[in-house]
Simulated scan of single mutants.
Amino acid sequence: MDAERSGPPPRPTPAEVAAAQGRTIPDWVRPGLRVLFCGLNPGLYSGATGLHFARPGNRFWPALHLSGFTDRLLAPWERDVLLDLGLGITNLVERATAQASALTRDELAAGGQALEQLAVRTQPAWVAVLGITGYRAAFGEPRARIGPQQRLIGAARTWVLPNPSGLNAHFTLPRLAEEFARLRGEADPAR
């Protein structure tokens, strides 16, 4: 995608956002990532732009920066910068929806299996699932909590982070960044 070189894509219209229902966004992965971040699924705004965590107000990019994973606040179109830092993005469920509550348990369980296969192929050191409810459903672990997990995904260690969506009122941006920083401390102990 040339968006990184040319700047942000045009802001989608409300009709374009509504029409993004069911669209998919390609994974941003390469072999040997330090951390593969796994969202639940793209929102409609992300589906319309083709960019992960693209909706203004989504706190993924600020939390990534405030936690120390990045030296500056990255924009959703800076895919190559993110990958060069050893960080990637995928989703448990590929299809864009207005809210994650539209996802079925079967979709999430299938997404857990697909994430396992992706981790086997790309061998990240860590997989960080963004959303405790989605993680519980995808991996059949109803008592899982935010933080490190016993489960390996492929050979990767697993961490569950809070969902960075602005709809997640349980976590303010500072608290979200603290949780990201806990993972960064494990994934980047020398930083």
Rank of each mutant, 00 (worst) to 15 (best):
D2I: 07
A3Y: 13
E4K: 07
G7Y: 10
G7N: 12
P9W: 10
R11K: 15
R11Y: 12
A15H: 11
V17M: 01
V17N: 10
A18F: 02
T24Q: 12
I25G: 03
D27N: 11
V29Y: 10
G32M: 11
L33T: 08
L33A: 12
L40D: 05
P42Y: 08
P42T: 02
L44T: 13
S46A: 14
T49V: 04
A54Q: 01
A54V: 00
R59A: 03
W61I: 00
A63T: 10
H65C: 03
L66T: 02
A75V: 05
A75S: 15
V81W: 01
D84K: 06
L87C: 06
G88S: 06
A96Y: 06
A98K: 13
S101C: 12
T104Y: 13
A109N: 12
A110H: 13
Q113V: 15
Q113C: 11
A114F: 11
E116W: 09
R121K: 12
P124N: 04
W126T: 07
G131L: 06
A137I: 10
A138Q: 07
A138S: 05
E141F: 02
G147F: 08
G147N: 08
L152S: 15
L152K: 15
L152C: 13
L161Q: 07
P162E: 10
P162F: 07
S165N: 02
S165R: 00
L173K: 01
L173A: 07
E178H: 04
R182F: 04
G185L: 03
G185D: 10
R191F: 07
